[in-house]
């Protein structure tokens, strides 16, 4: 690098730029958090949905599936599974309940979690709530996720 550009100048760009854009990120974060109620489906965020989210976490569903495109890529997207299953929480529950304990030979299999009926309902409600989040351009591109 040429001598006219000194180390002091480089240092100032680092401190100035770093601090400035950190503040910008904080500002944008505040704005984002404030405007979330427009899209976040919080009107449907019930106790039951929250319990469903805990179950989702306690069983590490994200270790195989994506949810709104984030997670693992081994099993289908679930952010729109409610729509894909014909807007039926019963269908979702039926699927989870019917997984064979020892899997399906030669196929990727989902474990049998032995959920109670109450737990199944909470999970299904959580997935319904997730499907209700308004994503930009209505992501995912189509029903297949």
């Amino acid at each position: 690098m040429r001598e006219t550009f000194t180390k002091g100048m480089a240092r100032n760009i680092y401190y100035g730029g770093g601090v400035f854009f950190f503040l910008v990120l904080i500002g944008l974060t505040v704005d984002t958090v404030v405007s979330l109620p427009k899209t976040d489906n919080s009107e449907n965020l019930t106790e039951q949905v929250a319990a469903g989210k805990r179950l989702w976490e306690r069983n590490d569903c994200i270790g195989c599936h994506t949810l709104l495109g984030e997670g693992a890529y081994f099993a289908p997207e679930l952010g729109n599974v409610y729509t894909r299953f014909g807007e039926s929480t019963e269908a979702i529950k039926g699927f989870i309940k019917s997984r064979p304990k020892n899997g399906i030979p030669n196929r990727r299999s989902m474990p049998q979690f032995n959920f109670t009926d109450e737990e199944l309902e909470a999970l299904a409600q959580f997935l319904k709530y997730s499907d209700g989040i308004k994503t930009a351009r209505d992501w995912p591109p189509n029903i297949q996720g």
């Binding site: 590490d60 569903c61 994200i62 270790g63 195989c64 693992a72 081994f74 099993a75 304990k101 020892n102 899997g103 399906i104 030979p105 030669n106 196929r107 990727r108 299999s109 474990p111």
Partner: peptide
């Protein structure tokens, strides 16, 4: 898909 299932499910390996 069924390799080591159900002993080490994919999410655990991951």
């Amino acid at each position: 898909g069924d390799f080591l299932f159900p002993e080490i499910p994919f999410n655990v390996a991951r």
